[in-house]
């Protein structure tokens, strides 16, 4: 069996979930799957899901290795807000756009380094270590924006979210490229093995010579960088840095995406690709709920029900039942 088919096979539950979520979208909005090319850019429901899902995809790409080391990064939503604020304040202060963007990404690296230091060197529990930045970080972002929504008109910064590359919105390209790069980084080097080993048994890994501190630090730095990129996209999308709301609660979406992607919160095996699929499943469900025309009071209830259903479906006790159910649904889809 080739590596590709093996990976596709491993991702079957996530692919099935995504198929169901897309099916619901088709049901809610006929013509949802239509794609059309206009002015060199693809339009359609699928593109919307990719585009809107790009920030959480990026967060999930960073979060997956963190969770694989038995850690968690609660600060990614806040890092989004800080990096967006840095970029907006940068261009408004007259910095050239590449400098502002680099400064924003560097901010993410520094935030990640801070988390990594607390976890790897000072041995804080990851949930506590990243909670520090989660709580304090929004204040930092607000100091930068002075509590306002920092609007900007720098066209290149806006283009981070508003332009097209290879017929796709740039955020989609960026998220997929980051996922690809991360996948390459963990699987073409030994980092993936080290991450999984450290997450499964840190003591054995250290005795086998794995530099556990470096591995732990690196995953948080990478998570910070991914969050900064997500923050740039979110900020460019609304042409303004909203320190109060940018990335709010998205860390939870990212964690959920990684869990849907099949990574255990107890660490160990992880997959970048499946985590990305997890993020897309979430976004597809959100899109369906938003477009269903139901009273908004039901939004959270529906989301909660769907998530509960998804996670139950992944529980070992339920898996045989779910597999049969999915198979039947897929049959129906094929007939349709």
């Amino acid at each position: 069996m080739s590596a590709v088919t093996q990976r596709l096979k491993a991702a079957r539950p996530q692919l099935a979930l995504l198929a169901v979520a897309l099916l619901v979208n088709v049901f809610v909005a006929p013509g949802f799957l239509d794609l059309r090319l206009q002015d060199g850019r693809l339009f359609g429901g699928l593109i919307d899901i990719l585009n809107r899902g790009a920030p959480v995809m990026l967060l999930a790409v960073g979060m997956a290795p963190v969770i694989a080391t038995r850690g968690i990064d609660l600060s990614v939503g806040v890092i989004m807000a800080i990096s967006g604020a840095v970029a907006a304040a940068g261009v408004n202060a007259g910095l050239a756009w590449p400098v502002a963007i680099l400064a924003a990404l560097a901010t993410g690296l520094v935030c990640g380094l801070w988390n990594g230091l607390l976890v790897a060197v000072f041995r804080l529990q990851p949930i506590v270590a990243t909670l520090i930045l989660m709580v304090a970080g929004r204040g930092i972002a607000q100091l930068i924006t002075e509590g306002r929504i920092l609007t900007f008109t720098e066209p290149h910064l806006i283009a981070v979210a508003g332009s097209t590359l290879a017929a796709l919105p740039l955020p989609v390209v960026l998220a997929l490229a980051a996922a690809g790069l991360t996948g390459l980084l963990v699987r073409a080097t030994a980092l993936g093995l080290f991450v999984e080993a450290v997450g499964t048994n840190p003591r054995s890994s250290r005795l086998a010579g794995v530099h556990t501190g470096l591995v732990l630090g690196a995953v948080y730095v990478w998570s910070g960088l991914m969050a900064a990129l997500a923050g740039l996209i979110a900020t460019a999308d609304i042409k303004g840095a909203d320190a109060n709301n940018a990335g709010l609660w998205l860390e939870l979406d990212a964690i959920l995406a990684v869990v849907i992607g099949g990574t255990s919160l107890y660490g160990g095996r992880f997959s970048i690709g499946r985590s990305v699929l997890g993020a897309l499943v979430l976004q597809a469900m959100r899109t369906a709920i938003l477009r269903a025309g139901l009273p908004p009071e039901l939004n959270l209830v529906l989301m909660a029900l769907v998530v509960a259903a998804v996670l139950t479906q992944q529980s070992p006790a339920f898996r045989p039942v779910a597999t049969r159910l999915m198979a039947r649904l897929k049959n129906k889809e094929a007939q349709a």
């Binding site: 809107r52 709301n245 940018a246 899109t287 938003l290 477009r291």
Partner: peptide
């Protein structure tokens, strides 16, 4: 929020 306002309006325009 601005971001959610934009996403909701996109949904309206599509729907």
């Amino acid at each position: 929020t601005r971001a959610k306002g934009k996403e909701v309006m996109e949904g309206f325009l599509k729907a």
